[in-house]
Amino acid sequence: AEESGAHVHFRQVTTARGLDLVRAAKAKGLRVTCGITPAHLFLSDNAISDFRTFARLSPPLRSESDRLACIAAIADGTIDVIASGHDPRGPEDKRLPFSESAPGMAGAETLLALSLNLVRDNVISTGRMFELLASNPAKILGLNAGHIVEGQEADLILIDPDAPWQVDGDRMAALAGNTPFDRLPVQGRVRHMLKGGKVV
């Protein structure tokens, strides 16, 4: 980024040291952005202490101190994107010894509810959450989307941020519902969705 002036996006930065490098690059005015998943914000390597393959991810879950550094980087604006990390793996890939299992998890259906935890914990505002989920990804990809502007297509969701539900891997729409958040009580549901101004 420094040599060429090119924009460089790091899909997932999950360590304190990595985030320090991104923070320093931004302070120098370099065009560097980065993302993270809710799993790396809310889980540490404690989740794999019993070799649970559903918690085997890429990049791997980090130490608790790294996890806290990630939360701080969300709060101070170092992290630009919260992505689902949606990479589900079927039973044939996960029901293996830990070292032989495939990394990955179903993340699309839990993205909103888990991200809302950051709002409830006063880490970020609701507006900032949607920048991380929608506006910034669109900007990074060069898409004319991710924000509400008169005259643009209405790509909108109506959410109930307080709607309670429980993550259930057996009921996920993903082909494989392997998630390290299985059975976790969460809050936040999409009630209506509009794509291009039409109810989906």
Results as ranks from 00 to 15, higher is better:
A174F: 02
F130C: 12
F42Y: 12
D170E: 15
L61S: 04
I79Q: 00
I140P: 08
D155K: 00
I148T: 06
I140Q: 01
V149F: 11
I71P: 00
G127P: 08
F54C: 12
A145Q: 06
H40D: 08
P60V: 08
E64T: 10
S65C: 03
I48C: 05
R171H: 13
G18T: 06
M172V: 11
L96K: 05
V167I: 15
R95H: 08
L57C: 12
A173E: 15
R89H: 03
N136S: 13
R56G: 00
L141W: 08
L111Y: 06
K139V: 06
F98H: 03
V190H: 03
G35Q: 08
P180N: 07
K139P: 07
A24T: 08
A24M: 14
H86V: 08
G90I: 01
T126I: 15
P88W: 01
L132H: 01
T179K: 05
H192A: 14
L118R: 00
A145N: 04
A113I: 05
V167C: 07
L156E: 12
L133P: 09
A6V: 13
V190N: 04
E109L: 08
Q12A: 06
T110I: 11
K195H: 09
V123S: 04
L61Y: 02
I71H: 01
T126S: 12
A163C: 13
V167Y: 07
R120G: 10
G77R: 12
R171M: 12
G5S: 07
R183W: 14
A145V: 02
N144S: 12
D80R: 01
G107I: 12
G127E: 13
F98E: 13
S84L: 12
H7F: 05
N46Q: 05
W165R: 13
A39L: 06
A16T: 00
L111K: 02
D160T: 05
F54R: 03
S115Q: 03
D160W: 13
I148W: 08
E153K: 14
R183A: 11
D50C: 10
P137C: 07
H9L: 08
R183Q: 15
D121S: 07
F54N: 04
G127T: 05
V32T: 06
K28N: 06
S125D: 04
G188N: 04
K28T: 08
S101H: 02
A113L: 06
D121E: 15
L116G: 01
L41N: 00
M193K: 11
G90T: 09
E109F: 11
T37G: 04
D50H: 10
D20I: 01
N178V: 14
S63T: 15
A47S: 03
L41V: 12
G146P: 03
T33I: 08
H192R: 10
D66N: 03
A55M: 09
N117M: 13
H192L: 15
G127W: 10
R62Y: 00
R52F: 13
D20Y: 01
N46H: 10
T53L: 00
F98L: 07
K28D: 11
P88D: 09
A47D: 12
E100H: 15
G151P: 10
F98V: 11
A39S: 11
M193P: 03
